[in-house]
Structure formats: structure tokens, C-alpha cells
Design a protein around this nucleic acid. Structure first.
Lengths: 187, 187
DNA sequence: GTCTATAAACAGATAGAC
DNA sequence: GTCTATCTGTTTATAGAC
């Protein structure tokens, strides 16, 4: 891996664990095994490095969600595959957590990839819900866009419950509760 | 308001807006109109001040949730009152957001009031769901604890969607989608 | 490309006068 | 109780040698 790549990977890990305001260039350099001059040669500063890291993390999350939602099976099964895919609930979402970072929220540039990821996710989930309703697998009165927002929010909020208690239980309960609510009435 | 109270209120506002790692003692002093010596006379340092602020915010949130959930009406109406109560979705949850703060998450003392609030909230919501199921107002197959976790998670995750896009829409959609899912099949 | 040196501003206090 | 002075370490770079 090149020094530049190591810097991005180190930044991704630190943004996930400590957020943007909690991550210093020095910490990035140490984690990447690079010096000051090296970092400022490849990137103009912390914002540019963070942008590259956020874009990489958003891309990875999108590919992971796609592989669950594009799979075979009923709409309910695909949403379940998305909700139950392997997650480390206590670590939270590497992209969603950045919405609570004041500097990311205040920067249109840094927020853009976050916004795009959730926009895409909500649209993709809405499509799956729409297909499920059309196929008679989900309740006919469901609004696809609203339901998609509820699914995305349950995951993000599940991380909050997990980290509040220090165990993954809250995440699991929230997700299973949602799957129960989505289950067809005739099951 | 006493200097001590002003320091706590200033800390509450800054923790809400910038989190723990993003809040400096200097910023607290300026917002409170107090000097260094004054702050360190009333509190041993940033952690003790933050603890007082978090406890105050958690208490206020608990009273707000109680007033919605203890009201009259069906279980669905009381959950709706809780979900639809006036919120500034873009500001997020003053307590829930702290779960994403690395220093709060790492400190058992600072995390305790956060843990207790969500523990209480999930229990209270589970009671309301249980009453609704018993009264035939909610689907009989619902698990009260799981459903409660889903409700709490939808609110917390709704804030994430709102801040990702910069508008309150995501919060509103998530909450309304959940209310649709909770609506009795026969309605 | 990578290294070391330097630096202004901020973080998070402590000490002691008033 | 509140104030000012002081202090150590960190943050976020820039400059210039190698």
C-alpha cells in the first residue's frame, strides 16, 4: 500500500472511532506511519484527507448494502439480509456518525458524500419496498419512501442504543422489532 | 441565574452543538460569561462539568417523554404524541448524540446518565406497547421490548437522516413510516 | 517524496492575588 | 468567588534541507 493509501486508511479508521473534531493530523500520521511532510505533500490538510476518507467509506458501505438488497428472495428477505448483515454495532456507522460532527455538518463539501449515501440508500430501500408491495409480500398501504426512511433510521438509531448501553442488544432488538412490524399480516 | 448554573447551561448548549471533544473549557467560559478561576472554583474540570450538564439534559428529556407517554388516549396515540412532539430535527438529540463521542463512550461516569435515560425510555415505551397489545389496539404478535427499541431507534436515526441531508424531511418520513407500521391492521 | 525545524493559536489546567 | 498570570502539551500547519 502506498503512503497516500495508508494515510487514507488511517484517516478512515480514526474518523470512525473518534469523528472529525476528535482526529488530529498527528494521530493520522502515527497510525499511517508517515511523517508530517509526507502527509502535507499528498494532501493540502485535514479537510482534503477527510474528504477522501469519507468518500472511500461511503463507497464501501454502498457496495455492502447493494449486495444485500440486490440479492434474490422476497422483499422482506432482502430487507432482512440488509438489516442482519454482519455489523459491529458498538462501533456504529462510519458514515452516519459523521452527521453528528459539527465540522462535517457545517461543511458542504464534507457533508456531500454523506448526503449522497443516505439519499441513495433510501431510494434503493424504497424500490425494494415498492416491489414487495406490488408482489403482495408487504402490506399494500405502506408508503415506500416513508418505510425506507424508517428502515434506514432504525439501523442508525440502533447504533445509538447499542453505544448507550455498551452492548449490541439495543441494535439487535430494534432491528428485529422492525422486521416483526414489516412481516406480512398473514404470516 | 448563578454563575454555576450559567456554566451548566452553557455546557449543555455546547455539548448539544459540538459534542464533548468539540467543546473547550474556554468556549464554556465565554458562553457563560465566567472566567477561568470561576469555572475551576465550581467544577474540578471539564469532565465534572459535562457530567452535570448531561444529567440535566437527560432529566429534561425524560420529563418531556413522560408527559407524552403518560397522557390519555390509545397506545398508538401516545406513541404518536411522543414521536411527533415538537423537535428541532436538525439539532439532533442532546443526549443520544453523545453516544458517538469517543470520550463519553470511553468514560463509564459520563456514559451512565445516557445509559439510564435510554434504559428508562425503552422500558416506558415497552409498557405502552404492552398496554396497547392487551387492549387490542396494537397487533397481538408484537414483542413489547423489541418494538420499544425500534421506536427509540427510529427517533435517533431520524436525526441522522435529517442532518445528513440538511433538512428535517428524513426525520419526519422515518417517524411517519413507523406510525404506519404500528397502525392496527383493521384501520 | 520524505524529513526535521519552527511557530502561532488553542486545550486544559494550576497558583496565587484580591 | 472571581480575577490574572503562568505553564505544559497539542493542533494545524509552513519552510526548507535532503
Amino acid at each position: 500500500m502506498s503512503t497516500r493509501e495508508r494515510l487514507v486508511q488511517a484517516t478512515r479508521a480514526l474518523l470512525w472511532e473518534r469523528g472529525y473534531v476528535g482526529t488530529s493530523p498527528k494521530a493520522i500520521q502515527q497510525q499511517a506511519g508517515a511523517g508530517q511532510g509526507s502527509m502535507y505533500h499528498h494532501f493540502s490538510g485535514k479537510p482534503e484527507l477527510a474528504l477522501a476518507a469519507i468518500e472511500a467509506s461511503a463507497g464501501e458501505l454502498r457496495r455492502a448494502a447493494e449486495s444485500a438488497l440486490d440479492g434474490p428472495g422476497t422483499a422482506h428477505a432482502r430487507v432482512a439480509a440488509y438489516l442482519l448483515r454482519e455489523r459491529d454495532a458498538l462501533r456504529g456507522c462510519p458514515v452516519g456518525r459523521l452527521t453528528m460532527d459539527p465540522d462535517v455538518f457545517a461543511s458542504a463539501e464534507l457533508r456531500a458524500p454523506v448526503d449522497e449515501l443516505f439519499d441513495w440508500l433510501r431510494g434503493r430501500l424504497a424500490s425494494v419496498v415498492r416491489e414487495g408491495v406490488a408482489a403482495g409480500e408487504l402490506a399494500p398501504e405502506l408508503d415506500p419512501e416513508r418505510t425506507a426512511a424508517t428502515i434506514a433510521a432504525t439501523v442508525q438509531g440502533g447504533y445509538v442504543l447499542a453505544r448507550a448501553s455498551g452492548t449490541a442488544d439495543g441494535f439487535d432488538a430494534a432491528v428485529r422489532g422492525l422486521l416483526d412490524l414489516l412481516a406480512p399480516p398473514a404470516n
